[in-house]
Design a protein around this nucleic acid. Structure first.
Lengths: 136, 136
DNA sequence: CATTATCCTACTAAATCGATAGGAATAAAG
DNA sequence: CTTTATTCCTATCGATTTAGTAGGATAATG
């Protein structure tokens, strides 16, 4: 299940992508429009900024804005940043790989093999979907 | 992320599917073979039995056994039973549907639409994969 | 009746989730 | 230079979920 953090993060990014110019948008504006707790959204936007997706400006007229063109931000990037691994088990994760304690041989593991298939399919979708696609 | 419960459950089912005859297998045998905590596995097998996947026999020579042919047990059934929804958001779930609090219009929601696509793909895989496939 | 197994309920420690609180830092406007 | 508006940052918190554990009840076998 997708966390609210990720869901809210995506919604906020879509909101920013739909802005015509790159003028900073305040947290409170997004939070009201998308029905997201202001403080919670604040922490989400902060991590997006710290990871190079958003820029920010303090003080009056400040807010957040996209640093890149929406079509250059794939879902894989957003998901990995906010949600973590895309795979359902760590042993089939590309970016968050971890060996299973209980499993002596990955290639012989039935779970491993189905989940590999699922990951490939999901990854394919996320790779081919950018923030621009979401914003249409 | 897949819970250990689901992962262990699948592994145990595969173990049972690989048995030649339908003789009951004791929890402790499976737990040792698959490196799963005995007590934890006990509770997992219990829910599988309560949901018509496994049969059980008490006392000496007792244990758990599959009630159906492995090829008649699709991953969808196992997943929904142990893990819950297959979808990443409740608003695109077939069996565990729930409306989002924050979302006034599902069809206009960017998150909804990507996740619908992901669900379709994942579902397709799980529908076409049975316990028999996992056991090969 | 003794042994061997599942059955069942309840409990628990640790982690994660979804926030919330409150002030510091900074930028703009007057 | 002061006020106001905003992000920045750290810390905390209650609820829920996860991954078990404990211990006895129940039933089948010999």
């Amino acid at each position: 299940m997708l966390s609210k953090k990720t869901k809210y993060g995506i919604k906020a990014l879509v909101y920013l992508a739909r802005q015509e110019d790159r003028v900073p948008v305040q947290i409170s504006v997004i939070s009201k429009s998308e029905n997201i707790s202001r403080k919670f959204l604040e922490s989400i936007l902060l991590t997006l900024r710290k990871n190079g997706i958003l820029g920010s400006k303090k003080g009056k007229g400040g807010g957040y804005y996209l640093l890149k063109d929406p079509k250059d931000i794939p879902m894989t990037t957003i998901m990995r940043l906010l949600e973590g691994p895309i795979a359902m088990v760590p042993c089939v994760s590309l970016n968050f790989y971890e060996k299973c304690d209980d499993c002596p041989d990955e290639n012989a593991c039935a779970v491993h093999n189905v989940m590999l298939k699922v990951r490939d399919n999901t990854l394919e979708i996320f790779r081919n979907t950018t923030l621009a696609d979401l914003s249409d």
